[in-house]
Amino acid sequence: MKIIETLKFKKEKVFAAELAEQLARDVSPELMQKRRKALSVNKITRLLEKTYTKAQTFQQENSMGFFRRSIFVNAFQWELKSRNYPEDFSTMATEGLVISLMKKPTQ
């Protein structure tokens, strides 16, 4: 049963990893840790909004309910942590993802 559950949510976990990878390409964890003050708040906001928009599109295309969203968000947060993003950034980015996924889709 555990194998079936793991395979069942693989798509969400893979996409969460892809989002974290894209974010790491746009703003590296090393830069966030060592030279955070050199980063523009507007740039970080734009990058996170781009990430959230991709996540919203994925949610709409895959009809994610509460449980699938939870798995997706958890996987995203762990991906950020595994890439050594600062704890406060990982938490803030994850909270933003949760909020964006709770919004009603715009038509």
Rank of each mutant, 00 (worst) to 15 (best):
residue 89 F to L: 11
residue 20 A to G: 03
residue 58 F to A: 05
residue 88 D to Y: 12
residue 8 K to G: 11
residue 95 E to H: 11
residue 82 S to L: 10
residue 27 V to F: 04
residue 23 L to M: 14
residue 49 E to T: 11
residue 32 M to G: 01
residue 60 Q to R: 12
residue 39 L to W: 05
residue 61 E to H: 06
residue 69 R to Y: 01
residue 94 T to S: 13
residue 54 K to Y: 03
residue 100 S to D: 05
residue 46 R to T: 11
residue 85 Y to A: 02
residue 48 L to C: 02
residue 89 F to Y: 15
residue 48 L to I: 00
residue 37 K to R: 15
residue 107 Q to I: 09
residue 7 L to T: 07
residue 9 F to Q: 10
residue 29 P to C: 09
residue 35 R to K: 08
residue 52 Y to M: 03
residue 23 L to N: 00
residue 74 N to D: 10
residue 64 M to Y: 07
residue 61 E to C: 03
residue 106 T to H: 13
residue 104 K to A: 15
residue 30 E to V: 10
residue 33 Q to R: 15
residue 61 E to Y: 03
residue 14 V to Y: 08
residue 32 M to D: 08
residue 37 K to G: 01
residue 85 Y to L: 08
residue 24 A to D: 09
residue 100 S to E: 14
residue 5 E to C: 03
residue 90 S to T: 07
residue 97 L to C: 12
residue 64 M to L: 15
residue 21 E to Q: 09
residue 34 K to V: 00
residue 80 L to P: 05
residue 105 P to F: 05
residue 27 V to G: 06
residue 3 I to E: 12
residue 39 L to G: 01
residue 74 N to W: 04
residue 82 S to N: 15
residue 41 V to W: 07
residue 38 A to T: 11
residue 91 T to S: 14
residue 70 S to V: 01
residue 6 T to S: 15
residue 76 F to N: 07
residue 76 F to W: 08
residue 16 A to T: 05
residue 15 F to V: 05
residue 45 T to W: 08
residue 59 Q to P: 00
residue 65 G to T: 05
residue 39 L to N: 03
residue 31 L to K: 14
residue 71 I to R: 09
residue 45 T to N: 13
residue 95 E to G: 07
residue 33 Q to D: 06
residue 85 Y to T: 03
residue 94 T to A: 04
residue 86 P to T: 10
residue 5 E to V: 00
residue 7 L to I: 09
residue 29 P to M: 01
residue 101 L to D: 07
residue 50 K to M: 03
residue 1 M to L: 06
residue 11 K to A: 15
residue 98 V to Y: 05
residue 71 I to L: 12
residue 83 R to I: 10
residue 65 G to N: 12
residue 49 E to K: 12
residue 95 E to D: 13
residue 65 G to E: 07
residue 35 R to W: 02
residue 63 S to D: 07
residue 105 P to C: 06
residue 46 R to K: 11
residue 70 S to E: 08
residue 66 F to M: 12
residue 4 I to Y: 09
residue 101 L to C: 04
residue 15 F to N: 09
residue 104 K to E: 14
residue 55 A to R: 04
residue 39 L to E: 02
residue 6 T to K: 15
residue 54 K to W: 02
residue 90 S to L: 00
residue 43 K to C: 04
residue 8 K to F: 07
residue 58 F to R: 07
residue 23 L to S: 06
residue 55 A to I: 00
residue 33 Q to C: 03
residue 12 E to N: 02
residue 8 K to S: 13
residue 17 A to R: 11
residue 52 Y to I: 06
residue 3 I to N: 12
residue 42 N to Q: 11
residue 52 Y to A: 08
residue 39 L to K: 01
residue 17 A to H: 06
residue 45 T to R: 14
residue 98 V to S: 10
residue 8 K to N: 10
